[in-house]
């Protein structure tokens, strides 16, 4: 009997804390339509949790993350496409909310440079190969 009371008390304490600390994707959030749910998960995985350190809203416990997860699912059900949903979020929170940096003028170097590095690397290998045959 005492054990049951302990459990109730602990549950209440934890519920109180966890209600301000919702868990990652809860069962009640999951959409019935599997395809839509998959879309929601994929979009969520690309949205940064603004109050966490380096987590997506898909993984995060934070209340804001949960709110955004639900909002994304509502928009999917309402028929919005991915671009519209991303734009809705970046209009309000800026590009910072995207975990995958967008292709814009200020991220041109970010996306382009790795390719340049790789090409330079290939060039060096071919240069070496060619020079070695000359000797």
């Amino acid at each position: 009997m005492i054990k049951k009371n302990f459990i109730i008390i602990i549950s209440i304490c934890l519920v109180h804390f966890f209600s301000n600390n919702a868990q990652t994707v809860e069962p009640d959030e999951i959409l019935k339509n599997q395809e839509q749910e998959l879309r929601a998960r994929n979009i969520s995985k690309n949205i940064r949790c603004m109050v966490c350190q380096n987590q997506s809203i898909d993984e995060s416990n934070a209340p804001l993350a949960k709110d955004l997860r639900i909002l994304i699912r509502e928009k999917i059900k309402a028929g919005k496409n991915n671009e519209e949903i991303y734009k809705f979020l970046t209009d309000r929170y800026g590009d910072f909310i995207l975990l995958k940096p967008p292709f814009k003028l200020n991220t041109f170097a970010l996306w382009f440079l790795p390719l340049i590095f790789f090409v330079i690397g290939i060039f060096i290998v071919f240069f070496h190969n060619k020079k070695s045959k000359q000797i």
């Binding site: 603004m50 209340p63 804001l64 709110d67 909002l71 309000r92 929170y93």
Partner: peptide, 13 residues
């Protein structure tokens, strides 16, 4: 009530 106005304002904490 549901925090949607805050989201529209870009509020995160």
């Amino acid at each position: 009530k549901d925090g949607r106005i805050a989201i529209d304002w870009g509020v995160y904490g």
